[in-house]
Amino acid sequence: PGPAAGNPSHFMKGAIIQLATGELKRVEDLQTQDFVRSAELSGGLKIDSSMVVDIRASQQRPGLVTLHFTVGEQQSKVTIDVPPEHPFFVFGQGWSSYSPERTAQLYGLACHQMQVGDVCVSITLQRPPSPQKATAQPHHPQQR
């Protein structure tokens, strides 16, 4: 597959992102608070943090970068291979990638240099509260 295959067009500079508030923002203008508020409003989604703990060239898949993260309060270790231009959203900083030059070439998106210690926005599905703890629920006539 060509190097551009699968580049998500969400990251193209100028792409319009609709927040959970209904507000429209260009992808390059997104801020940490936009993710936080949207996740809150969406219900069932929780903002989590994934810290970059190691960055290196992929051994198995040349051309890709292997990123090691520790995720959430449990500090779970997660490893992923991504193209060097793939942007991540760092808390309080904004878009960052292993290769800001490539990100700029392919997406036009300005990025910071991703570094070990960066804490990236990630979003998990929130576990539903246990039934015992459930308080008064609004009436759902069409519960499935």
Binding site: A15, Q18, F69, V71
Partner: peptide, 19 residues
């Protein structure tokens, strides 16, 4: 210009814990 709902970005963000 296409409009993407914000949650369509979620799969491209940093990984979450797999449990």
């Amino acid at each position: 210009v296409p409009v993407f709902p914000w949650h369509s970005l979620v799969p491209f963000l940093a990984p979450t814990q797999s449990d």
